[in-house]
Nucleic acid binder design. Structure first.
Lengths: 229, 229
DNA sequence: AAAATAGTGTCTATAAGACATTATGTC
DNA sequence: GACATAATGTCTTATAGACACTATTTT
């Protein structure tokens, strides 16, 4: 039980920040957007998740859109969902900062050239390579990856990482990139098609030097619950 | 996309609060702890969830323990898990307040007489009767109930609402109180016992004017994942 | 023996998971 | 026709859900 005495509750202000774990899938691998953090003496050119402080007249979602634009040059529409709020006292060595962390997803194919680019300031890195991040961002990223794994298993959020039209092989590859396990092709197709969330299109994926595959789209643009995958 | 210009990010302070939806099960019904909110002119003696502002040197969990003791006279150990952070600009009519909401569970049988009592200031009310709460607490309670329903279906959190020793009938009644649906006795027992998370005890529930029932306890005090119920 | 709950089993339908071959397009 | 991926089906085992009666204790 906490027994702290606080004299005047009206002076209890806290600095409120938001951080985003923004994912995409590129070449069948899961990538996360990281920026360069340069805040001597604690962080000198180390990678970190994009984030920053909330303005008094912003919701967390609005702040994220602003911060992603400012710090990560991202302006494409995103799928955003709240992840967790980190309240440890010493998570920022500069002082008390509470962070409302978000999970964001974007399809690689929708990005502009600028958004795809890597620079010193901001880059896409494989999730497996995103280590030793500033602040408590290793922990935030870890929570985000776990949440993403869990969410794709009982919702259609995966749709937010894919282009509008995709083949079943591409869909399966996206699951495998996130879950980091191989799935059986026959069982995957059988199960996914039975869920009745996909529309087959009147086209096929062309331009491949082999047999073209049927294209599908999600029937519903909204993320919905599905049977456990 | 947000396009707001903010002159100096170091003055972006926000008031940070925490609110708790504290549940218990009493007489086979789900109850929530509410306090009296009297903050004229906006809220005059209306019910609300216990909560308050974070001190600069507290985590959200510590603040909740302090606030529950101060405002709701609750000192028993609780199961606490973070629910959601509410960041709407106008959720508090007195100004910008961001609330980190928590879900808390406590077994009725563990409570002291003082903790069980209802007064003008603080009381246990049936969840179905907890309406028209102050601030956005209707929304917080709604999210909390949905989360609780979801969590009992794939974890053993229900253990945090039960006394250490309980019968299968009592366990089923707890599920029914939360899910608000009748469960089949035979299927429930079969399924729960197969999960292998319960220990049968060498005792029975005595004092009933009918056939005594076998007592069980959870093998593990920790909340763990189970098959979907 | 009456009352009240405790405790149990079977059947059917559906889902999960293991597993290999044929089909169809490009070059 | 060589190559590379697309597409498909069966079998086994496990789980979900519907459903009703007997057992045991108290009074």
């Amino acid at each position: 039980m906490a027994k702290k005495q606080v004299s005047n509750e009206h002076i209890k202000f806290a600095v409120l920040a938001t951080d985003v774990a923004l994912f995409t899938i590129k070449e069948d691998e899961l990538y996360v957007r990281v920026i360069n953090v340069n805040r001597p003496p604690h962080f000198v050119n180390v990678p970190g998740l994009p984030g920053g402080l909330l303005a008094p007249d912003e919701t967390a979602e609005e702040a994220i859109e602003r911060l992603l634009e400012d710090k990560a040059l991202m302006t494409s529409p995103l799928h955003l969902e709240q992840l967790y709020t980190f309240t440890k006292i010493d998570r920022d060595p500069r002082g008390r900062v509470v962070a409302v962390a978000y999970l964001a997803l974007v399809p690689w194919d929708n990005l502009s050239e600028k958004e795809k680019t890597n620079s010193n300031e901001v880059k896409w890195v494989r999730v497996a390579d995103a280590k030793k991040l500033a602040y408590d961002h290793d922990e935030i990223l870890d929570v985000a990856v776990k949440r993403l794994r869990s969410r794709i298993s009982y919702t259609t959020v995966i749709s937010r990482l894919l282009p509008r039209e995709f083949t079943l092989t591409e869909l399966k590859a996206a699951y495998e990139a996130i879950l980091q396990t191989a799935l059986d092709k026959r069982n995957f197709r059988k199960k996914f098609l039975k869920m009745d969330v996909l529309n087959p299109l009147e086209k096929e994926r062309s331009g491949t030097p082999w047999r073209p595959a049927q294209l599908y789209e999600f029937k519903d643009r909204k993320v919905k619950e599905i049977e456990v995958l």
